[in-house]
Design a protein around this nucleic acid. Structure first.
Lengths: 334, 334
DNA sequence: CCAAATTGGGTAAACGTTTACCCCTTCCTT
DNA sequence: AAGGAAGGGGTAAACGTTTACCCAATTTGG
């Protein structure tokens, strides 16, 4: 069996209180005894039991994070940034994947809550169907939503201003001469899909562009981009530009256009959203709306800590303005 | 304060034992009392405290997983497969990211061990420098290494046969007429880099191909692929084929070649390793060595459970044969 | 030099569960 | 009808820590 603090205390000839004190440094202990305790701990290969400690202390020094789908490269990027922020605060991040399924997402919430995480960071799968999961979080545990949010649910949120982001993309392709613009994105399930769609409609209206070109809504994946590209080609009238809801879709669109010899950007302009690692490596390199991961993560942890410090803090929603990164898929810089 | 089982018992007018029994279903309880307990639990919004439960029961129903870098899309793919396998076994997966740093990796191991995970799945950062981290895992907790392993360390492993995989790639490009072949991969730090390098050398020797073409070793990232491609171009004699240590590198190589108008596959053949999501979307679509995620995950859980059932089980290392996926970057099918 | 404060040690309660053990009914079995 | 088994309830110990509280010894201050 693995050694307990009791064993350590016994071997060192001190009380468990003393052992605990030297092991955690919670109070001063005479150097002689401290030395003995440390020796005993080393000799017994003692590891503290964080479960017992958490039970007694009432907190776990753990924050849980749930993302909709870890396979979507945007989320790992956010996770890495959050992890860096958490570094050095003495807390560990445990990551869970909801597999794009609100039932699994809810299960993850329960698992994390049961394990008494000190806080929860979540990118909700759905703007509406994730409400049940979020609602199961007791008021005593701080939650912050990142990137996506649940509608009409009172919890902190930090993300990019999706409407503005899509607006940048639309304005950019318009400035490059595009008049007819199609929109390929994910079904209006997640808040980001909703907001980006909204942003597209508004931008089109604002610029007085024709609004009878297709909005194709599927999933945030490249396969969907491919399929949508085919649909656009079959529909006859190819638009001047295709604004995509994220980079994966855009990469799929690019791939299909390439396969069918539709030249980008000469024949069609294409834009993405997120600026994932692969965007710059696509062919042609993808013009996209960059999400500032580090800022998002920083704000996320700030919100979490604020709520941790004072649970009564009013709910905050922080929208950060994204920036446009111009690459070859819309004709390149200049 | 959140309600405890004591509160539930009190409200239901039963003992905590009875409450616990109905809440966990561990023993039969009369329907009348069971009803009362359930009502009380619902009324108080009772959530069981998994920390207390784990302390008492001695296990957590949690398995921990540590990957070198969650931003490398190969790992999320493995994670997803593992998660699916774990589904329905009543255990939850907590994922941690080592950020390619053995010190952080070791910290993650400690964090997970302290929290009493029932098992640990790890993709070690380094074949040598990760030994310290692995050595810190007490013998009482089952560990299985996936994809990569620590040299001369007695712990289960499951992965793909890297040597064989690279062999497939080399043989394939050779069969397409490549005579001079360069190898672009990661520095010989991780076991996969070591094995793939070894596989390359052996295949070259076996086929009697010239061995004086460059081996460029950097990182498993696209930027390195770009840099290596530039190096190859500057070195004068461009090889007939470039075999890459993973898909990200290959995508970088492809990107740079495209930018410099070096045609793939007409001028150079390029292969990758892993078959990540983007491999098929690269330009041209990438010929690569496919890792069978589902099989890897299945074997991983099998190993973990075997060791859980009997800690004395002899150490097993399972190498699964990968398959070659032929795409345009080597001339396409047929 | 005495009172007060400080230091450094120990005892035991508490955190929230689960479950071994005990006890009282009730129901079979012969 | 007696004996035993089975069913269903409760009490309390245990899991491994941390820490409030207590106490003795020492130091400090006037």
């Amino acid at each position: 069996m693995t050694a307990t603090i009791r064993d350590v205390a016994q071997r060192a000839g001190v009380s468990v209180a003393t052992a605990s004190r030297v092991l955690t440094g919670s109070r001063k202990v005479s150097p002689i005894l401290a030395e003995r305790v440390n020796e005993a701990a080393a000799a017994l290969d003692y590891r503290h039991n964080a479960v017992a400690r958490a039970l007694r202390r009432g907190h776990t020094n753990t924050v849980g994070m749930i993302v909709p789908e870890i396979g979507n490269p945007f989320f790992p990027a956010i996770v890495e940034a959050v992890e860096r922020r958490l570094q050095g605060t003495g807390r560990d991040l445990f990551l869970c994947d909801a597999q794009q399924d609100v039932a699994i997402e809810r299960h993850r919430v329960h698992a994390l809550i049961a394990r008494q995480v000190d806080g929860l960071i979540i990118v909700p799968v759905s703007a509406t169907a994730s409400r049940a999961a979020l609602a199961d979080i007791p008021g005593s545990v701080p939650v912050v939503q990142v990137d996506r949010f649940v509608e009409e649910f009172a919890a902190d949120w930090v993300g990019v201003d999706d409407e503005l982001g899509i607006g940048l993309a639309v304005e950019h392709v318009a400035s490059r001469g595009a008049h007819t613009i199609a929109f390929v994105s994910a079904a209006l399930e997640s808040s980001s899909a909703l907001q980006r769609h909204e942003g597209f409609e508004r931008a089109i209206a604002r610029l007085g562009l024709p609004s009878d070109f297709p909005r194709l809504l599927g999933t945030y994946r490249a396969e969907w981009g491919r399929a949508a590209a085919i649909e656009l080609l079959h529909s006859g009238a190819l638009p001047d530009a295709v604004v995509c809801g994220n980079d994966e879709i855009a990469v799929g669109v690019l791939g299909e256009f390439r396969r069918r010899q539709v030249h980008v950007p000469d024949r069609v302009l294409v834009t993405g959203f997120d600026d994932i690692r692969f965007a710059a490596l696509a062919d042609p390199p993808l013009t996209t709306v960059r999400q500032p991961h580090e800022q998002l993560a920083a704000e996320c942890i700030r919100l979490l800590d604020a709520r941790l410090a004072d649970p009564q803090t009013p709910v905050q929603r922080t929208a950060i303005a994204p920036t446009l990164v111009i690459r070859e898929s819309t004709g390149g810089a200049s």
